[in-house]
């Protein structure tokens, strides 16, 4: 079945693949951290802000959620050159952060809303301001409750980083694609890189399961 395959191309391409993998991770972590921070602000804007601010946040979130990530990647990458010089990698980092913020914001909103009203009242009752109550009482609880869901979103995010293929940013998939084409062995490289993705994603989903159980016990 694999008789006409040549997997000997894998070892020499490892350093390049490694660079791709590092970028995939960098993209994932940046978009996750940036996305959670901006997403939390968006969620707060929707829940507490005035009408205009809440409406703006909702519009942003709804827009991002109804347009494919692939389209957003193209939008930013193709429009940005009219304003500045930008590499595909930087473009991907910015697009992913802004895009993921919408998804993390929905998760944080659900998390904040799951905290009983009494907790907010208790914060006010000991003299905390609205923002103090949010920062010290509500958000820490909401965040802890939502850790498994946030991780599940990150799992999707990590897989989606492969979409930067469309703008030629060198992530794990693109690196494999490039070396495969260089050696004329794309089939072998695709199989190899699938195994890498599988190993990472499988471990991540096991970790989410473990967190789910742990959090369930704490509750």
């Amino acid at each position: 079945m694999f008789s006409n395959f040549d997997f000997s191309v894998i070892p020499p391409s490892l350093p390049y693949i490694w660079q791709g993998l590092v970028f995939s991770f960098r993209l994932t972590v940046t978009a996750m951290l940036g996305g959670i921070i901006i997403g939390t602000l968006l969620a707060l804007a929707r829940l507490s802000g005035g009408k205009a601010l809440g409406f703006a946040a909702k519009t942003y979130v709804d827009l991002m959620r109804s347009v494919p990530l692939l389209m957003m990647i193209l939008w930013f990458f193709l429009l940005a050159p009219f304003f500045m010089k930008i590499t595909p990698e930087t473009s991907a980092l910015i697009t992913f952060t802004l895009f993921q913020a919408a998804f993390y914001s929905e998760i944080m909103r659900a998390g904040i809303q799951s905290i009983p009203r009494g907790q907010i009242n208790a914060g006010f009752a000991i003299g905390m301001s609205y923002w103090q109550t949010m920062g010290n009482v509500v958000l820490p609880q909401a965040f802890r409750n939502m850790v498994p869901v946030l991780l599940t979103q990150t799992f999707i995010l990590f897989q989606d980083t492969s979409l930067v293929y469309a703008i030629g940013a060198t992530d794990l998939l693109k690196a494999a694609d490039n070396t495969g084409k260089l050696y004329g062995r794309t089939v072998e490289m695709y199989i190899f890189v699938s195994l890498i993705y599988f190993a990472i994603c499988f471990s991540l989903s096991m970790f989410v399961k473990y967190m789910n159980k742990r959090i369930a016990i704490i509750r």
């Binding site: 492969s162 998939l173 695709y190 890189v193 699938s194 994603c201």
Partner: peptide, 8 residues
């Protein structure tokens, strides 16, 4: 089917 990105 869940653990490999759709594009790949």
């Amino acid at each position: 089917f869940r653990n490999v990105p759709i594009l790949l």
